[in-house]
Amino acid sequence: MNAKPPLVLLVEDDADTATLYMAMLSAEGWLVVSCENGQTARDWCFNTQEPPQLMVLDVRLPDTSGVELCQELINALPGEYRPAVLMLSAHGDPRMPSRCREAGARAFLDKLRDLDRFVDTAKLLLEEQASLNNSRFYHVNLTEMPD
């Protein structure tokens, strides 16, 4: 019997960028739910029966900051359902990775980085998430992804 594919929540306001990431994530065989702003993501998270294992959030969203959304969703979801968060940004602000880390994100990537790098990071986070869920060992911190 095949294992259920991981569920990924993608929050990205630019339609073309969202299409790109969806294509990359779907190609890995994962289920992807795409939201174009913070409110849609919030609504989906609070109403879904099945919480995502990974959230890919854009730092800059039209109605809220991705950093705030990350903190809010992480705090709202109970520990055992708490997903890994990968933050994406086109800002180029050097303070952004640490701000994302403080908000609870496990990884931060510049949007212009190689696409394979994006997929590898998502994969690694999902594997860690699976291992965390299996061991219920939560205090591993992987916010800084090695290059």
């Binding site: 630019d14 073309d16 960028t17 790109l20 294509a23 990359m24 190609a27 086109a90 949007k111 696409l115």
Partner: peptide, 26 residues
């Protein structure tokens, strides 16, 4: 500067990403 970075990088992200997808044959 933040806006410029965002507004110039966002189209670049799609452009670069899709071109990479096409080039990689995936």
């Amino acid at each position: 500067l933040t806006t410029l970075s965002h507004e110039l990088k966002t189209p670049l992200v799609s452009l670069k990403g899709f071109l990479q997808l096409m080039l990689s044959g995936r």
